[in-house]
Design a protein around this nucleic acid. Structure first.
Lengths: 148, 148
DNA sequence: CAGTATCCCTCAAGATACTG
DNA sequence: CAGTATCTTGAGGGATACTG
């Protein structure tokens, strides 16, 4: 049923977490949610994922208590997906993924977030991921990259 | 080639990290590596994964610079897989996975690691994952669970 | 717009047999 | 023991058409 093998019987908390959010899309949905994305088509456009897959992932994340469905804030008839408390608790995980990726998978663009941290004076943990990504650094500090 | 879509062209560091270690087994291999597992058959027994899959994952983790192959330390003719610096940098990620899983996926067994932390006086980040898991608490504090 | 329903295809993953 | 080779299967995922 899940994208991953059912490990809910497994006692290791790491395995259980991987079981819930360790697939190709779930964590990216969560990342987008931290960036303020709330609507189906916005997730879809941001991720480029097939609609049926997105539908499935959103439903699972709701079932897992990570996202919740709300009536739309702007008055439209449609619903929105927002992070629950439990979903927000994934923030350190997303930060850890981001930092590792930045440090080890970007040869030339290392230390971007550290530079952001230094310039803004804010610890990274208090910044939204996209706020970090989109923070512009002057070209002589590092290339400003365009993000998905 | 990877279990995940090739996102190495993607600029988001989270997506790239997910691309490298966001599959069903890689992170669990890394978790075991933090626990001191080094040999093929030990990974295999610990994870219950098929041999060909394990072989593939180990190769990918080596290719990604997360694991390195060493001659066996005990004099046997076989090699061992050990974490590189880059692999060790995944520790915060594993900790984040563990903590989230503990807090949100174990209804009755919450706060185990917090109790360990309190009793040992050591911050969790300085303890090996398995050391946390296996730390025994007296039954009146919490059930000691057996881990995979 | 926000999904659902179908179809199809690839690939991850398991099982098993085999090899140095 | 530490893998590799081969086969099969089932799930993940994409494309597209359809619906309220």
């Amino acid at each position: 049923m899940n994208s991953l093998k059912n490990m809910s019987a497994q006692p290791c908390p790491v395995a259980r977490s991987v079981d819930v959010i360790g697939d190709r899309w779930s964590l990216l949905v969560v990342r987008d949610a931290f960036d303020g994305v709330r609507r189906f088509s916005d997730f879809q456009r941001s991720l480029g994922v097939a609609r049926n897959i997105l539908s499935d992932r959103l439903r699972r994340l709701v079932d897992a208590g990570i996202l919740a469905i709300q009536p739309a804030s702007n008055g439209s008839a449609y619903q929105e997906y927002v992070l629950t408390k439990q979903g927000e608790a994934l923030f350190p995980l997303v930060v850890a993924l981001r930092q590792w990726g930045e440090r080890h998978l970007f040869a030339e663009d290392e230390l971007h977030s550290e530079l952001v941290e230094k310039r803004t004076g804010k610890p990274l943990h208090f910044m939204a991921p996209r706020a970090i990504d989109n923070h512009e650094l002057s070209p002589d500090e590092t290339e400003v990259r365009k993000l998905s």
